[in-house]
Amino acid sequence: MSAQAAVFHSGSLDESKPGDPLAYISASRLKSFLTCRLRFFYEKVLGLKAPASPALQIGKAVHAGLQHFNLARWRGGDTSPAATLQAYDKAYGELEVQGPVDYEGKDRTECIDTGQRVLDAYLGSDLASDPRRILGVEAYLRREEGLPLPLVGVLDLVLEGNVPVDFKTVASTPVLEDEAWQNELQLTAYHLLMQDATGEEPGQGELVYLTKTKAPKIVKQVLPPVTQVQIDRLKALIDVYADGVSREDYHPSPGMSCRWCSYRTQCAAWAGSKVRKAVGMAA
């Protein structure tokens, strides 16, 4: 099976199953590794399942709705709100079958309604009728050269001018400066992928935020052009990843992110190099 057929599944990189962490690098893998190596080990290397949060559940289902809408625009399918919401509902149900959702006391119906409101807001916005030609939807790209590991990414949307667009569902109105910082690695990775895939200089990346507020807002952010420093920085961090993974250096990074980490039970059993034994005990 080819790389694309193997890792491209349901509109995203299928990183839910255990996999060789040196087979390729993605922005998701890199960010997970840099946030906490032990969490990365549990989640991406061992593929330990953790219940999805409501935010993740809604985000993935909204993503599926957007995928349907943009594919339909591109390929001449049904772009109606009804068809888009149907795709959303279907994805929501399928995701629940694939893995449990920890609703944390939140009402499931309210969560479903939130996603629907967000999609409705997008479909009613100017961005839904962006006049730029669509060049790709859920575009799987893989760059083999110039990096210690193949770089892989699935771009939500690519518009005329080789502009990569990524959709983000967020809880509140985004602080754009913070978001640009948070998403720098991802957009720099997309820049490298687009450069390789088209042989041309990519356009400036765009982030589209869909806020899950009571009256959802759609905010577009055009990021500054990717700089050589950002590219060098990404490459250096990929080096750190390749080196750390090669040495199986997976240690915890206690900090703020522990508050919403699903692997605290396993993490508590970690004791230096006995990581694998600890996982076995926890399981």
Binding site: H9, Q67, G76, A83, G136, A197
Partner: peptide, 26 residues
């Protein structure tokens, strides 16, 4: 190019029932 080929592959896989594109229907 690679970007376009990726789009074609996805559409071919969808049309032959091997990817998510089929879910979009139509």
């Amino acid at each position: 190019n690679k970007l376009e080929a990726s789009g074609l592959i996805d559409e071919l896989l969808g049309k032959t029932g091997r990817s998510s594109a089929k879910k979009a229907g139509a």
